[in-house]
Design a protein around this nucleic acid. Structure first.
Lengths: 274, 274
DNA sequence: ACCAATGGTTCAAATAATGAACCAAATAAC
DNA sequence: GTTATTTGGTTCATTATTTGAACCATTGGT
């Protein structure tokens, strides 16, 4: 009787309320697709056009989306800025992150970034470049990256609940590059190492020529919220730089966790000593 | 038939869609009330507790709110940061504003801020201090200010549609200080001046001892989105500083409007000459 | 002039939202 | 230390909202 409706619904296999449907529309906006027309959004969401239109109208009235002048395509609205500012006032992740990123970037001379876990992906919310080198790993905020193919993702997975890790590893694991790990068992083996060291490392797993280190950051409930990472060109990596990055990254991640009011779990390396 | 929304509508007893109801819950979070319990939100929203609970659950699933660890109070969630980063990628108001604010602050030596119009209020989304003086006007992001009592608000009202101006002026006009203008006709007279000069000025109208200047910033449709403002202590204001502020502010506001892809309306002073 | 898009609208049918009453647990009051 | 109140959370029959096929009016391409 009931058709498989929206994408999220089919993925989750559950029913979704009207509010969830409306909010799920917002997830179709990405960096590469910042504006979406009614028909496109209808196709993307697999919902009825009238439904999408009504939901968009409500989202628009609330300022979550607005219509770009030229065509009548929709894009995210100014209200999200207001809420983000408010969220920052309550939990200053962005503000704190920027300071930590700048210092970590200065100490290592490489590109740094913070990403937060959301569903089955990570979102980069802030980044910083070091002026030290002319060549650097380029980043964008709001970039979406996978769990299995990145150091940040592995750092989170290593300290996530087993159920979550299982869910991620049982899903599709696309290879971003020739060096991406795609075998669940191989990934689990790496996660054991990450758990032991507290830092994840990835050489060319997401982007070729990028050597990444990442450490998890934890929330008040000791669960990993996301990760702090340093991305360096493979060509520049040396044992000395690697040691520097690992030491600075470990320190910076602990600082970030602390400053946002989080606590590391007992299993995190170095906690017992504290 | 258009469908305006939010608090005003609920108070008026009209119908609002489920999505609007859910999103309206988010409006109860403020700087001074960053966390709200279920019962409190039920009272604030005047909705049924079960309804509020279900809406919150959906908002939580989408990451728009989360529950603080201690009590089970709700606060804004990390998803708003992601959306804000995306919005910034599409319309870089914050990024551009910060640059403009810094330069304007450096040029004038005073506190600068950008506020966006939302319903019947303005929201400060970014601010910058100048290190020049030890005494300065303090600001917070996400601060909410009124239209009628502030230079920023007057700057927007002066170039808003007559209907919008009428709506604001027919609403309650509380006096923030002894110097707040509360008479609609007096306000309209001031708006005429603002329209002629392109800059609004307020001495102690919102906070005593603060002398504010503000210029509107316009969107792609030539409608005012908000305002760029300079706030100086009354005690420091001199004719020379006033002239400096007005000239720098005018330049900075035009720059901001341009950089976010907006266009000034023909009625804006100085447009004909261009 | 046509065709195929687009954004937007309508209305009966089907579904999802609602709200009073109800828990259990935590505070507050006595 | 017992009682009364308030909290977050849950249930389920009633109700009102959402839904979706079909329908416009424009726009742009050929």
């Amino acid at each position: 009787m009931k058709k498989p409706a929206t994408q999220a619904q089919r993925e989750a296999g559950k029913k979704m309320g009207t509010v969830t449907k409306a909010l799920s529309l917002l997830t179709f906006f990405t960096q590469t697709r910042p504006e979406i027309g009614l028909s496109d959004l209808t196709r993307l969401s697999r919902m009825n056009k009238a439904t999408v239109y009504r939901l968009l109208t409500e989202l628009q009235a609330a300022g979550f989306v607005e219509q770009a002048g030229a065509d009548r395509a929709y894009r995210l609205g100014p209200e999200v800025l207001r809420l983000a500012a408010l969220r920052e006032a309550a939990v200053p992740i962005l503000t704190v992150s920027r300071g930590v990123l700048d210092r970590l970037g200065a100490a290592t001379g490489e590109t740094t970034h913070v990403s937060l876990a959301k569903d089955d992906m990570l979102n980069t919310i802030a980044h910083a470049y070091s002026p030290l080198h002319a060549t650097r790993v380029a980043m964008e905020d709001a970039e979406v990256i996978s769990f299995h193919g990145t150091a940040s993702g592995m750092a989170v997975l290593a300290f996530a609940t087993p159920e979550f890790t299982d869910a991620v590893l049982s899903g599709p694991l696309p290879a971003h590059t020739a060096d991406t790990l795609t075998d669940p068992e191989a990934i689990r083996a790496v996660l054991d190492t990450v758990r032991a060291e507290g830092i994840a490392e990835s050489v060319g797993g997401f982007e070729a020529d990028v050597h990444s280190h990442a450490a998890p950051i934890f929330g008040p409930d000791s669960r990993p919220l996301g990760a702090l990472a340093v991305a360096a060109p493979v060509s520049r990596m040396t044992p000395a730089l690697r040691a520097l990055i690992r030491s600075e990254l470990r320190r910076a991640a602990l600082e970030l966790t602390r400053d946002i009011g989080g606590t590391c779990p007992p299993s995190y390396p170095g906690q017992a000593a504290a």
